[in-house]
Amino acid sequence: MNIKNKTILITGIDEFIGLRAAELAIVQGMKVRGLQKDNRENSQNLGAEIIVGSLTDPPIAQKACQGVDIVLHTAQITQEAGSLKDFREINVIGTANIAKAAKNAGVKTFVHLSSVLVYGFNYPENITESGQLCGEDNPYCQTKIEAEAEILPLNTPPDFGVIIIRAGDVYGPGSIPWIVRPILMMRQKLFAYANDGKGVINHVYIDNLIDAIFLAIEKETYGEIFNITDGQETSWKDYFIRLAAMEGLPTPMSLPKDEMKLFLKLRHQGQKLFRKKADVLPESVDFMSRPHVYSVAKAQILLDYKPKINFEEGMQRTQEWLQKTEIQKLI
């Protein structure tokens, strides 16, 4: 498929991934429509048509999908913990609702942004897309698995094609979990990494992720699932030391994983007592201590996926963004 002049609907267009996807889609010559849940201003200057409403509202979903060639579904709840009911409402029911609306509207291609977290926290080295899925009794992991199961049966090419992208740890300008939140914690001298920073952050620079999505659309890889990372093996320790150095901050300390979880649990209880929003949840430690790399061989073979922006350049771009952004306003 030639994506130039095609109309793409991006759900969650006001969020980190959706916003950058919209910018790069416009550069590629696409017409962009966005769906967002409220009137946030950061998407208003894109030159895209913006629809405000809920993913779970069928009339809104139907309106958003009319006259669209491609849907890129990025909207989701991405917290590390919370109410399973709330996660299901958006991540599963909302996903199914927008996918069915797209199919009914005659949309050709539906791309669902999933996550490598569908494999859980303890998975084999170089796990592939056919590897075992594990919900880990975690609402994010569980509902990303359920969402995939909801939409894959809708795949009926050439009329309606579904593609699933299991993204790694997406970083870059605007990334809350991997840039903004850890830096804010470091500035308060409250950040530590677990177990000497062993294990691997499967980072993917935001533009590399969007490139992979566009490749999957162009190659019409319907019914396929792809792990997408930068394909580099960077330890958690190396990543967080680099992040601190970028800000001129002291090297973070390491704590045993169980101690970190206990500290964050007590801190969270204190914040609840004073009716403060939790800045870091205890479950985040599980997300920041995963052990192995995920295989991206399938994307390399079927999509000819080659990350254009390496880790050095990605961090340099992020540093330039940090120097001109008041990140505390993003939380």
Score class of each variant (00 low, 15 high):
4 K>A: 15
5 N>Q: 07
10 I>T: 02
14 D>R: 04
14 D>T: 10
18 G>M: 11
21 A>K: 02
25 A>N: 12
32 V>Q: 06
33 R>L: 05
38 D>H: 14
44 Q>F: 12
46 L>R: 00
51 I>V: 03
54 S>H: 08
56 T>G: 11
56 T>M: 08
56 T>W: 03
59 P>Y: 00
64 A>M: 05
66 Q>V: 05
71 V>P: 06
71 V>S: 03
75 A>E: 04
75 A>F: 03
76 Q>W: 01
86 D>V: 00
88 R>N: 11
88 R>W: 12
90 I>G: 01
91 N>I: 02
91 N>R: 02
93 I>Y: 10
97 N>Q: 06
100 K>G: 01
101 A>H: 06
105 A>M: 01
105 A>W: 09
106 G>D: 09
108 K>P: 01
109 T>H: 08
110 F>Y: 13
112 H>Q: 14
121 F>N: 13
123 Y>I: 00
124 P>C: 13
127 I>K: 05
127 I>C: 11
128 T>P: 05
130 S>M: 08
136 E>N: 02
137 D>I: 04
145 I>K: 01
146 E>R: 02
147 A>Y: 09
148 E>I: 12
150 E>N: 10
152 L>V: 15
152 L>F: 12
153 P>G: 04
153 P>I: 03
157 P>S: 01
157 P>K: 06
158 P>V: 11
158 P>K: 06
159 D>H: 14
160 F>Y: 14
163 I>M: 07
166 R>N: 12
170 V>E: 02
170 V>K: 05
172 G>T: 13
174 G>R: 04
176 I>T: 08
176 I>F: 15
177 P>G: 10
182 P>W: 04
184 L>I: 13
190 L>P: 01
190 L>W: 08
197 G>K: 07
198 K>L: 10
203 H>Q: 13
204 V>C: 14
207 D>M: 12
208 N>C: 02
208 N>Y: 06
209 L>D: 10
210 I>F: 06
211 D>P: 01
211 D>T: 10
213 I>N: 07
214 F>Y: 14
216 A>Y: 13
218 E>Y: 02
221 T>N: 03
225 I>M: 08
226 F>R: 07
227 N>W: 11
227 N>H: 12
228 I>Q: 13
228 I>C: 11
232 Q>A: 09
232 Q>D: 00
238 D>Q: 14
240 F>M: 04
243 L>Q: 08
245 A>T: 14
246 M>N: 06
249 L>A: 06
253 M>N: 12
254 S>M: 12
254 S>R: 01
257 K>F: 11
257 K>P: 12
258 D>Q: 15
260 M>E: 10
260 M>W: 04
261 K>W: 06
266 L>N: 08
267 R>F: 13
267 R>E: 14
268 H>P: 00
269 Q>P: 00
270 G>T: 07
270 G>I: 05
273 L>F: 15
273 L>G: 04
275 R>H: 15
275 R>K: 15
279 D>T: 10
280 V>M: 10
283 E>A: 04
285 V>H: 02
286 D>E: 14
287 F>M: 03
287 F>L: 02
288 M>S: 00
291 P>A: 04
292 H>R: 01
297 A>C: 09
298 K>A: 03
299 A>V: 09
310 N>M: 07
311 F>T: 11
312 E>G: 02
314 G>F: 05
316 Q>Y: 12
316 Q>L: 15
316 Q>E: 13
318 T>Y: 12
319 Q>R: 15
323 Q>T: 02
325 T>D: 11
329 K>C: 00
330 L>V: 11
330 L>K: 05
331 I>Y: 13
